[in-house]
């Protein structure tokens, strides 16, 4: 080849470079579409949800702390009755209780699967956990309705519907998520920490308790917060067992409601643009913001974990 030919071929964009550019554009486009969709959802929910406060002039504080939810009517002063506190309490109640119940089980199962018997863990428990993740929430709700609710009714009295039943159902639902993330956290603890601990004369239990769990604390907290975020957003299964009474729950077995259950029940029965519809969007906005806060917490924890 003559020098001119070489120069010409170098100056021309090669086939590989063209391919690379095509790939860049294609993947970039996908990202762009996803971002657009997310932003559009946020904008839509926010514009509807904020209308309650800007168009209908509902006080934000009263919305968050009011205990009576009856958007169609007004109280003595003529303010619409849109107090979301019962649902907020219900949502946080089931979420935190489910997380508190699920965490020890998840840590126990994860320790068994990673430290004590990885063989049985991989062969038996791993498929079980994957199966649990795959069960649709309506099935969980149905089981909750026909098993958990009667059980709670017989054991603790009341109707059986309430936060306690919701907790039990959510506990089973978030357990696989929290467990598998805890397993990842434990597996990411380097093997040589365990060796060092054992070589210093620690028992297996001491090694698990004092080194493995301690070194993976941030990962475990992330797993729990992730599970909470899932529990907070779960609608169907909770709705089936919680009783759906828009009352501030006085105890764990009195019927209550969550943000999600009110949404699924009320959305079809209100007219777009009306106050009762906007108030529901405000609840949706709240549901959108909470996982965001959970995510920020997760990132903070992960950052702190990475620094160590």
């Amino acid at each position: 080849m003559k020098n001119d030919d070489i120069r010409a071929s170098l100056l021309k964009r090669s086939r590989a470079a063209k391919n690379e550019r095509f790939g860049k554009i294609l993947t970039g486009l996908c990202i762009l579409i996803i971002i657009t969709v997310v932003v559009a959802i946020f904008y839509f929910v926010a514009s509807k949800g904020l209308a309650t406060f800007f168009t209908d002039k509902v006080n934000l504080w009263k919305f968050l702390t009011g205990t009576i939810w009856n958007p169609g009517t007004t109280d003595a002063q003529g303010n619409p009755q849109v107090g979301a506190l019962p649902m907020i309490v219900g949502s946080f109640g089931v979420t935190f209780l489910a997380a508190i119940v699920a965490t020890p089980f998840a840590i126990g199962a994860a320790v068994f699967m990673t430290e004590i018997s990885p063989k049985v863990g991989r062969k038996v428990l791993q498929p079980v956990i994957e199966l649990l993740v795959g069960i649709p929430s309506v099935v969980y709700g149905f089981i909750g309705l026909s098993v958990v609710v009667p059980f709670v009714r017989r054991t603790f009295g009341g109707s059986g519907f309430g936060i306690l039943s919701g907790t039990f159902v959510l506990f089973v639902m978030i357990l696989p998520t929290v467990t598998s993330m805890t397993i990842d956290a434990l597996n990411s603890v380097p093997r040589n920490y365990r060796e060092a601990s054992l070589a210093l004369g620690a028992t297996r239990w001491q090694t698990i308790y004092k080194v493995v769990l301690r070194a993976s604390t941030s990962g475990i907290i992330t797993a729990v917060v992730f599970g909470m975020s899932r529990a907070f957003g779960e609608a169907l299964a909770v709705q089936m067992v919680i009783g759906n009474a828009m009352l501030l729950p006085s105890n764990l077995i009195s019927p209550a409601s969550t943000l999600t259950s009110v949404l699924t029940m009320g959305m079809g029965n209100s007219v777009m643009g009306s106050l009762s519809n906007n108030a529901l969007w405000s609840l949706a906005l709240l549901l959108l913001i909470m996982p965001l806060i959970f995510n920020i917490i997760i990132r903070k924890i992960a950052k702190k974990g990475a620094m160590r």
């Binding site: 380097p190 040589n192 920490y193 060796e195 060092a196 080194v211 301690r214």
Partner: peptide, 9 residues
């Protein structure tokens, strides 16, 4: 050990 392996404490 070959790799220094202090605990992350």
């Amino acid at each position: 050990f070959q790799q220094p392996n202090p605990f992350p404490f």
